[in-house]
């Protein structure tokens, strides 16, 4: 393991950006301390010998069958848009994201 990395404010800001969370300064400060303590705790995994051990991503999945690749009804356009904060022209409306 990369040692126990020091989780600092710059790292939290970076991770918050990856997670699309606009944290306030005070929030980021508090979370830095809390997460550093949790990361220090989970670093105990480092000491466990896992040589040659396969990772488990999912249990039981090997028994699940594939579904037939057949079309079936789904939500109508109106139903899908009914809960949207903003809709226009039969689609979800969002703020500008491409510079014109």
């Amino acid at each position: 393991m990369a040692g126990s990395p020091k989780l600092d404010r710059a790292q939290i800001d970076h991770v918050a950006k990856l997670a699309s969370l606009s944290l306030t300064g005070a929030e980021a400060e508090r979370l830095t301390g809390e997460l550093a303590a949790i990361v220090a705790y989970v670093a105990e995994l480092d000491a466990i010998d896992t040589t040659g051990v396969e990772p488990t991503a999912h249990v039981q999945l090997e028994r699940a069958p594939w579904r037939a690749d057949a079309p079936s009804p789904s939500l109508s356009n109106d139903e899908a848009l009914a809960q949207a904060p903003a809709a226009a022209d039969g689609g979800f409306a969002v703020p500008l994201f491409v510079e014109g």
């Binding site: 393991m1 990395p5 995994l45 466990i48 896992t50 990772p55």
Partner: peptide, 16 residues
Amino acid sequence: GYYDAYYLKAQKVRTL
């Protein structure tokens, strides 16, 4: 930089 050290490691311990 942390995926193997934390996530993959935890998945291996899950196997144990």
